[in-house]
């Protein structure tokens, strides 16, 4: 059966009709056509679908769209644009923290929440903090560097 969901996505109020078994990531990708958020697995592990819901990183594949009723959702499209990038986006580019780019939006969204939540981060806590995001390309070396660099800038 269809159900109506109203939420705020990237600062904009949206109302969509969808089936009750629609996940948040399906709503974002298919209904709202925000295809920067990706799906890389079906067991809630890869983290490619990570978005912010009410300010915290969540796996949008493991949230029903209806559960996001009234929530504020931010996707990769909502954190920065070409001429005004979020420090995390810039750092990923500067540190070569991405290769194929598929895990990148989820990785960036998870990393922003990590920096927001943890007052102090070293390489080890960055690595631990990103355990919910799988990257097959980079070996994480440059991602860890990027998150460290962005953390410093976000705290400036």
């Amino acid at each position: 059966m269809s159900i109506t969901v109203s939420l705020i996505v990237n600062g904009k109020a949206v109302t969509q009709t969808c089936l009750e078994n629609t996940t948040l990531v399906e709503l974002i990708r298919e209904k709202l056509q925000l295809t920067g958020t990706h799906v890389g697995c079906d067991t809630s592990q890869c983290g490619a679908c990570t978005v912010h819901m009410n300010g915290r990183a969540v796996k949008a594949c493991t949230v029903l769209a209806v559960q996001a009723e009234g929530a504020e959702v931010v996707t990769i499209e909502g954190i920065g644009v070409a001429d005004n990038l979020h420090p995390m986006q810039s750092a990923f580019k500067e540190c070569h923290g991405l290769q194929c780019g598929f895990c990148t939006p989820g990785m960036i969204m998870a990393a922003i929440d990590l920096v927001n939540q943890k007052a102090e981060l070293d390489d080890q806590s960055i690595r631990k903090g990103l355990e919910g995001n799988i990257c097959r390309c980079t070996g994480y070396h440059n991602i860890v560097e990027a998150v460290g660099r962005a953390a410093a800038r976000m705290r400036e």
Binding site: S44, Q45, G47, T50, R56, A57, V58, K59, T62, V63, A110, D113, L114, Q117, G129, L130, E131, G132, N133
Partner: peptide
């Protein structure tokens, strides 16, 4: 438990 995103939910 789980990972950061899992712990948030």
């Amino acid at each position: 438990i789980g990972d950061a995103q899992v712990r948030n939910r």
